[in-house]
Structures are given as C-alpha cells and as structure tokens.
C-alpha cells in the first residue's frame, strides 16, 4: 500500500521516488493505528509496549499518531487516519479526544475504533474497560493490612491511609470507591483520607498533597493521578512513608517506599485485541472487561519491599483476589 494520496502529480512522483526508501508499507495481515496525546507517559507507554510486542509477534503494521494538545487538531487527525479505510483497528486513548472520536465515528461508521479505558454511549465501538475499582479494592485491602502492622519502619499506629486523585472525574471516583471498600473490608474502623489534585500534570502538587496526608497520620498513600501521582510516590521516598503506584509498574520511582502498583494491563489488553484481529478472529463491538478475573488489573507487590510484607498479608491478598475473580466479593462501581 502506498501511503501517499491527494498529491499533485509532480509532488506525487517526487515523493514516491523518495519513498522507495523504507516506510511502513503494509502487506501485513492487519494494520492498526493508535491515537493519543499520552504516548510519552506511563499508561500511553504501556500501550506502545503492547503494540510493539504485537507488531513483533503477529505480523501487523502499527502507526502511532500523537495528537498533541490542540483541540483544533483532533478532528483532522481522526479524519487523516480513518478516511482511507486503511486500518483494521484504531485505538484511541484520552478523554479529550471523545468529541472528535464521536465525530469521526459518525463520519466513518465502518472504521473500527477501540476506546481505551472507558465506555462511551455508542454501541458499535469497541471499549477496553478496566475494572479499576477491583484493582483499587486490592490496593485498599493491602493498605489497610499494612497500616495495622507493627514494627515496620514508617508505619505508625494511626489507622489512616491516604488517596490522591488527579481530577474529580467519574473514572477517578471509581478508583476511590474500590479503594475505600477494600480498606473497609479489612478494617471497618480504618479511615481513608482522600484528596483530589485538580490536575493530572503537576507532580509538585502531588508531592505537596501527599506530604499533607502523611502529616495527617496516613502512612500509605495510593494515587490515581498520572504524572501528578509521580509526585506522590517521590514524596513517600522523601518522607520515608509508603505509597502505591497506579496503571503501570511504578516501583522504581521511589524504591523501598513504593510498596505496590495497581496495574491496568493495557499492554496485555492491546496485545490481545491486535492478536485477535491478526488471527482472523476479529474484534467485536462493545466493552471488553479487563477485570481481576481476566487478569486485566492486578496488584503488583514491589520486589524490593517484599521482605517487609508479612507472608500472611500476601496470602490474604491472594485469597481476596480469588474471591473477586470468583464473584464472592462484589466491588462497587460508580460508573
């Protein structure tokens, strides 16, 4: 497939001549594109990893389209991607793109879009939906167990754990609900001190908020705040308290102080869907639930703090995981 169109004949020949050099000319079994403004950040990086792995394993062509931050550009970028029916799947990540996505979807109804990390109104799009509430339940249960430990450095006697959210939006609320439920499941008397930073892009603010939570007696703070959350993790390293990362493996942000990471396995999710497409099985519309049972969310205990996590805590956590997977524990959701 020659990836150059709408060019005047002169430019066309020039460019084609120039283009005989390598580019992603695709004779592959599938072509996929991914559109987002976050490929350089944690969750977006995980998408890129999943796609790269899929590209290596399944003989697919992959194109990444960075949207930048200008709302005016989004719609044209969707059109550029969708208009030639070139891609079998187009992954989309980022809530700011939803309006443009919906426009493009109605303009190109045959283009299969996969919206990552949320469910929109339309029934004939595909959604990758992570059960962040279930993962957060595990994080909450873990935090509650750890805060009642004795003899661990940096763990105080107060029964308080913390939470820093990015902005007060439904998906972040869903983290908090699961987290609170997990804490209460272990210890109904434990308190969750929660706060929203109002932004996903301000690590300094994250640090500041985490420090104030530690000051209130919280010894473990869980974050669902993107780059803002990195500030939370760094704060735990500075103050000698503990934190829990989110979305991807964040154990090395503050080694020894990040106790765990609640992983949304978006890399797995993307890899699985591309694989399904490449194998000819195809990807259906509607939501794919990446929950605890499906291995879409999990709580990774950081290896470098394993020694201070008692075996009974680890066992209990595994038990809870199985209970959620089996439906014995039902986690609330606000979505």
């Amino acid at each position: 497939m020659i990836r150059r169109r709408h060019l005047g004949p002169l430019l066309g020949s020039l460019a084609t001549a120039a283009l005989l050099t390598p580019l992603q000319a695709g004779a592959q079994s599938a072509d996929v594109a991914a559109i987002s403004g976050y490929f350089a950040q944690g969750f977006g990086l995980a998408i890129v990893e999943g796609l790269n792995q899929a590209e290596a394993d399944f003989d697919v062509g992959v194109l990444l389209v960075d949207t930048g931050n200008r709302a005016l550009d989004y719609e044209e970028q969707f059109i550029n991607v969708a208009q030639d029916d070139e891609f079998d799947l187009v992954f989309v990540m980022g809530w700011e793109l939803v309006n443009a996505l919906e426009e493009a979807h109605s303009a190109y109804p045959d283009q299969q879009f996969v919206f990552i990390d949320g469910v929109l109104e339309s029934d004939d799009m595909t959604y990758v939906d992570f059960a962040e509430n279930e993962g957060s339940f595990l994080a909450g249960a873990f935090a509650a167990m750890m805060t009642s430990q004795e003899g661990v450095d940096g763990i105080n006697s107060d029964n308080v754990v913390g939470f820093v959210g990015g902005r007060d939006i439904p998906v972040i609320r869903n983290f908090l609900v699961g987290y609170e439920q997990g804490v209460a499941y272990i210890d109904p008397d434990a308190r969750v001190a929660s706060v929203f930073a109002g932004t996903f892009d301000d690590p300094a603010r994250g640090s500041e908020l985490a420090m104030s939570l530690y000051g209130q007696g919280a010894d473990i703070v869980y974050n669902a705040a993107g780059p803002t959350g990195e500030g939370v993790l760094q704060a735990s390293g500075i103050s000698g308290n503990y934190s829990i990362g989110v979305d991807i493996d964040q154990c090395d942000v503050a080694p020894g102080n990040v106790m765990a990471s609640m992983l949304k396995r978006v890399d797995t999710a993307v890899y699985d869907l591309v694989g399904a497409q490449a194998s000819g099985e195809g990807v259906r519309t509607g939501a794919y639930d990446f929950n605890v049972a499906a291995g879409g969310v999990e709580l990774l205990l950081c290896p470098d703090v394993m020694s201070s996590i008692p075996q009974e805590v680890q066992d209990r956590l595994e038990q809870i995981r199985q209970d959620i997977a089996s439906g014995a524990i039902v986690v609330d959701s606000v979505l």
Binding site: R4, R5, H6, L7, L11, L14, A15, A18, L19, N80
Partner: peptide, 10 residues
Amino acid sequence: IVAYATLLDG
C-alpha cells in the same frame, strides 16, 4: 522532500 511534500499534501 518527503517531509515538505507531505506538509503540502496535508
């Protein structure tokens, strides 16, 4: 050349 041609095309 590809860059500028694509730019004009776009």
